[in-house]
Design a protein around this nucleic acid. Structure first.
Lengths: 340, 340
DNA sequence: TCAGTGATGTATAACGATGTAAAAGTCAGC
DNA sequence: GCTGACTTTTACATCGTTATACATCACTGA
């Protein structure tokens, strides 16, 4: 049997509202009443029906976090950070994997789960600008990650170009000359959010090797297998890289696997830099040098941005779209420095 | 402005219920009416308020999945599987990391989020039997994983003892003699759910090395660092293992890291077997031999069990607690077989 | 012509909580 | 003992939906 306020009220001999007042810690309730009601609540094991509360309040306290997939530890770690930070602010996070598919991303962006969620944090991969514009302006939306849009939404992303430059420069500083890039996406010409590729190109174009396509391996996705295959193609092509900067850490891990299979040493033969600073990188046989976006800062910025649209003062809610740039750091490890 | 059924009804000149009927695809609606209503719905951009629907129906179509953490890829992959499978059955999954803390696990088990979720799948670590018994019998609960309880709930877990025996035996079959175990939990004596340790012990106790504690490294947790430290202690203790069976894959990855740092080769000096078959294992410098629980089967069994309690026929709902044992397989890779 | 049938549509009451406004209770001060 | 000011409690409407019960309508068959 499900206990409602009414049941408690009847048993305690007070009105429904009084019970509600007790539950919500309303100030003006006599200690005597409060105690009596509380006792009945405990006796009956009453728990407020959140759904009813949500309906009445017009708010659910739930925000959605739509990420490509949890199989990539970066997203898993980010999700963890968002969930925990939001929990501290009394918000529940609903995690929605989009599998990087445009139809899924559209679904979430356009207000699937209407009024079940108060707002949405979306890390898009395939989503197009027009999809965002076609959006009924329902719950506020915060965008996450490398892709850039001309749409009025808050956007949280580190400076990907600068980070990529830093990574590439690090390899050059170590004396490497033929620094390759793995992870450019094929067929994404229409809105080329290749900020990391751009950073690589900017730095490499000023070197003897140049920033040409011979040192770029395009991939279909951003997974381990993509990295492994990309590395294999680079080696087979005769590009003869002595270093690679990978789109992300799992791509780098895939690339290192191929290097190991070919009997090439990291970093002696090929130095490797990743991107994301996932925990796995610290346990590879050559620990992975990587760009570490400040994940906690990203998670907090995303949630804060969303909540300021939801709960902020009027001028905060209506403020122009914000672009927050959390910091990043280059973490130097064995895959570029070698074992000390 | 938020559009409700009422607004649509007024504009279309029909009753609220008729609009509801159209939205829900109720059969007996004239095509003419249906079209007129549908047009207004499209015009106004009406979206049903899920919260209200949930209140009215007494069901939300949301199930919670409480896992220790997403930082362990096994749980991330499992979560992905559960979310996707449940989505196919029109259920939404709310992911709740417990961080392996008892208070968090109790919270979820005892009906936190009352009536926001229809049911709960919980993978406990610290939870005690008494915590489960103290549960108000609210939403149905399905348990996941190694821990065993004397409480009337469905339980999904592979045969951990058999799996551990298989892994250990595999190492013995390769001619290893001193097979260690990393990952026994300290201070868990009260309810020693150490099925994997037991499996190891059963097999090892019949060998010359024996199943004694000298070859067991206890750890505080089940993460990469625990594996690294456990391996270090084993090596320092003089136990001189020529193989290790690790509680799970991330522990194994940590252990392999330590081996690499010590200049020991895998598998020549020490062979390694993990447990979980996470994707990372296929990309280690020595790919990881591991026990592969059938994750998809586990995810499906958990969701199916829960939904049969929710939506099943009466006798299904009331059936005795079920114990489902999905299968597993030993995946032989380089960490035991070497590079071909 | 009219009862009987089934299809279609409507009015209204829930679901369980909270907000509002007003009623009831308490107490000080004269 | 009464007024006024304040505290405590109550009754009722409301959030947006679906379920129930009933009204209406068109059509069939005697």
């Amino acid at each position: 049997m499900v206990i409602s306020l009414k049941d408690v009220a009847k048993r305690a001999g007070v009105s429904v509202k009084t019970v509600s007042n007790v539950v919500n810690g309303y100030r003006h309730v006599t200690p005597a009443t409060r105690q009596r009601v509380q006792q009945v609540i405990d006796e009956l094991g009453y728990r407020p029906n959140l759904t009813a509360r949500h309906l009445r309040k017009g708010r659910t306290g739930i925000i959605a976090l739509a990420l490509p997939e949890l199989g990539n530890p970066y997203f898993a770690e980010l999700a963890n950070a968002v969930i925990n930070y939001a929990a501290g602010l009394d918000y529940i996070v609903l995690l929605d994997p989009t599998n990087g598919r445009r139809d899924q991303e559209i679904l979430f962006a356009q207000g699937f789960r209407a009024r079940l969620i108060d707002g949405l944090i979306l890390s898009p991969i395939e989503l197009e600008n027009e999809d965002l514009l076609a959006r009924g302006h329902d719950a506020p939306l915060v965008l996450l990650g490398e892709r850039e849009y001309e749409a009025p939404h808050d956007h949280i992303a580190i400076d990907n170009v600068a980070a990529a430059r830093t990574a590439t420069q690090h390899l050059l500083d170590l004396g490497r000359e033929r620094v390759a890039f793995i992870g450019a996406r094929q067929g994404r010409s229409r809105q080329p959010a290749h900020l990391r590729l751009r950073g690589w190109r900017e730095v490499m174009s000023e070197t003897a090797a140049g920033g040409g396509d011979d040192l770029v391996a395009t991939t279909d996705g951003y997974g381990r297998e993509d990295g492994a295959q990309g590395m294999a193609r680079l080696l087979d092509s005769g590009a003869a890289p002595d270093a690679v900067f990978c789109y992300n850490d799992v791509v780098a891990i895939g690339a290192m696997r191929t290097l190991a299979e070919r009997g090439l040493r990291v970093p002696e033969d090929v130095a490797v830099v990743g991107f994301d600073n996932i925990e796995d990188g610290r346990y590879c046989s050559a620990t992975l040098t990587t760009i570490a976006p400040h994940k906690q800062a990203i998670a907090e910025a995303a949630v804060d941005a969303l909540l300021s649209r939801l709960d902020g003062a009027e001028e905060e809610k209506e403020a122009a779209p914000r672009h927050v740039r959390p910091g990043f750091a280059l973490i130097r490890r064995e895959s570029t420095l070698g074992r000390p």
